[in-house]
Design a protein around this nucleic acid. Structure first.
Lengths: 348, 348
DNA sequence: CATGCGACTACAAACGTTTGCAGCAGAACT
DNA sequence: AGTTCTGCTGCAAACGTTTGTAGTCGCATG
């Protein structure tokens, strides 16, 4: 029922191959002929069938985007940026959700493999070896984890964690808890490593609570553990957990930041909406989405090229972090005025 | 390079048609033969090429999902539910973002038309006639707007608006502002209609401010207009605008709910995170996503069947709504205890 | 005048499937 | 014994494109 290339050929009195070339190789066909063809195509409402094209060219002009949890506020900006960027280059995006499950993740890559030109694997829960294996089935770009031999885009979350710890120590905190993220997360390991090092360097104590699922509920659930740890500040794996923690502390009558300071990571839309507004490490998610698309489209063919893009993070100081018990000098209330998200908005 | 059906046929010593049937019509092939074929396929890591299959069957097993703004917290739960539901039925989901632009929307439907079995059009900004026209190109299911002659799933947002207004009037408010949503939104018209009617019935005044873009910024931007209107309560088009408004009011030293009550719509994840927690109308977004997929898969073929699924909404009373100036009786602070989101969590 | 070239177009094979049809063996009827 | 039926399998066409090759024409070149 829908118009095919053959209909257009008939209507414009040329061979199908000419019609094809009128679209995909304009310089090979007479300007006049081409005009006729395009007119006829327009008339018939012809749109090329991408499946047929894919069958012969081997390129589908589709990209798969696999995330751990669409509803996690970290991902929508990334998805949005990737989709828009991809569409600008005439690619469409499959989006799929693994529910934080490595098994589902693998199944999804395999299922998508034949109908995409590549897959963007965001915050994967699989092992490196699993990922490497899958990369033989379909070009992969990994986001939020470096995988040896594969193109990847990561955020310099270690630097973010370091800044956060230094910020807290600077405020007078000597005993800090790290509210850990999910097992198997590279980001989590990275944060832990950097935070531990930064704490030791600064002469502070760091107690790790976790691993935990990266959810708000999980943040709330660890409130008692945090209190028991007797710390005066907490660095959470992400904003979601930080928010959950603040909430639970609030319920227990513990004041943030007066009694405990809390710092998140990601600078999601949430962080400006909580009371107190969340001090957090801004990660450039939209830029990551675009970069991942670019990498995939670049070496779509020359597979197994190593390439690692590292995006910078920065500390956004708001209201959830305040002076600790060991403050040595400086004004009473806070070291720096709140930036009110300015930093995160100028960041692109 | 990747294994094709022919490789499997060769490896198992049968004809390709037998291999094909071993997968798609198991009852037509001998159990033993089938076992051989499946074993060979497994051995070779064979996965059928969906493009080739689509070419001949005419069904791609793909669905397009078009939303106005992925980053709007209303959509991720819907996307997530739709994706998971679709995948359970062996369908994959294209997700695309129109940036609230009707032109982009149309272009997207057209672009997707040939490579999907149908499109889920969420909160469209196009006109009904445009949508009807497009439905001749590809099966459509519309979400958040009824379109005559097309399957659609809507939320009974009118009822929600009514409940919200009655709630406010019950609290003693006699002058209420409606912070309107985007032009061209059916939901917006519906809310306006229902709110106006409910206000008149209850003997209260309703002043409409808008239309406005459905964003947080837009909510903030209208704070002065709200104050000028001299109302004691506001019903916002969605949570996002409500949150923006509360924020701006806070900046101006206006207390919510003491001086002005604010009610949102959607019960997004945000609403439990604001201080005060937002009183809002819960819309079943996940259920809507699933229902839309179901409708599309049901009458994928017998097009142009009218069918309208209406999902119920409910009022979730939290802390952003309080007594108004004309309270007649009852305890001082509030009429009902906050539900703390229980209602919205039990709702599925 | 023959040759070669450039610009354009037609032909046909191929991509990896599905599916109507025909064939064939053996079983079950008459 | 002949016929019909049943269960299974092979054959080949088709889906809508792209693309290498070959052909045609007119024209400039030698």
């Amino acid at each position: 029922m829908p118009a095919t290339i053959r209909d257009v050929a008939r209507a414009s009195g040329v061979h199908v191959s000419t019609v094809s070339r009128a679209f995909s190789a304009p310089h090979l066909v007479n300007t006049e002929t081409r005009a006729h063809v395009l007119a006829a195509a327009e008339e018939l409402g012809y749109r090329p069938n991408r499946a047929a094209r894919a069958l012969i060219t081997g390129r589908t002009h589709n990209i798969g985007l696999i995330v751990a949890d669409i509803a996690n506020p970290f991902f929508p900006p990334l998805i949005k940026a990737a989709e828009s960027h991809a569409r600008g280059r005439d690619y469409h995006l499959f989006v799929a959700d693994t529910n934080e499950d490595a098994g589902v993740e693998e199944e999804l890559v395999l299922a998508l493999a034949k109908q995409v030109d590549g897959v963007l694997l965001c915050s994967p829960r699989m092992s490196n070896t699993q990922i490497e294996q899958l990369s033989r089935e379909v070009p992969l770009v990994v986001v939020n984890r470096p995988v040896p031999g594969l193109p990847a885009v990561v955020m310099d979350v270690a630097q973010g964690a370091r800044l956060a710890v230094e910020h807290l120590v600077g405020l007078g905190h000597r005993s800090i808890a790290l509210l850990g993220g999910p097992r198997g997360s590279w980001t989590n390991r990275e944060i832990r490593r950097a935070a531990t090092l930064a704490a030791r360097t600064a002469g502070a104590e760091l107690v790790v609570i976790g691993p935990n699922p990266p959810t708000e509920e999980s943040g709330s659930a660890q409130a008692d553990a945090v209190l028991r740890a007797g710390v005066s500040a907490v660095l959470a794996y992400n904003d979601l957990m930080a928010v959950g923690l603040i909430d639970a502390l609030d319920h227990r009558g513990v004041k943030v930041p007066d009694q405990i300071s809390v710092v998140g990571i990601d600078d999601t839309a949430l962080s400006r909406r909580t009371r107190p507004m969340l001090t957090t490490v801004a990660t450039p998610t939209a830029a990551a989405g675009r970069a991942a698309v670019d990498m995939l489209l670049q070496h779509g063919d020359d597979r197994r090229t190593t390439a690692l893009v590292t995006l910078q993070t920065e500390l956004v100081i708001r209201d959830s972090s305040g002076p600790g018990p060991h403050r040595t000098a400086g004004p009473g209330r806070r070291q720096q005025p709140p930036l009110d998200g300015v930093a995160s908005e100028s960041r692109e």
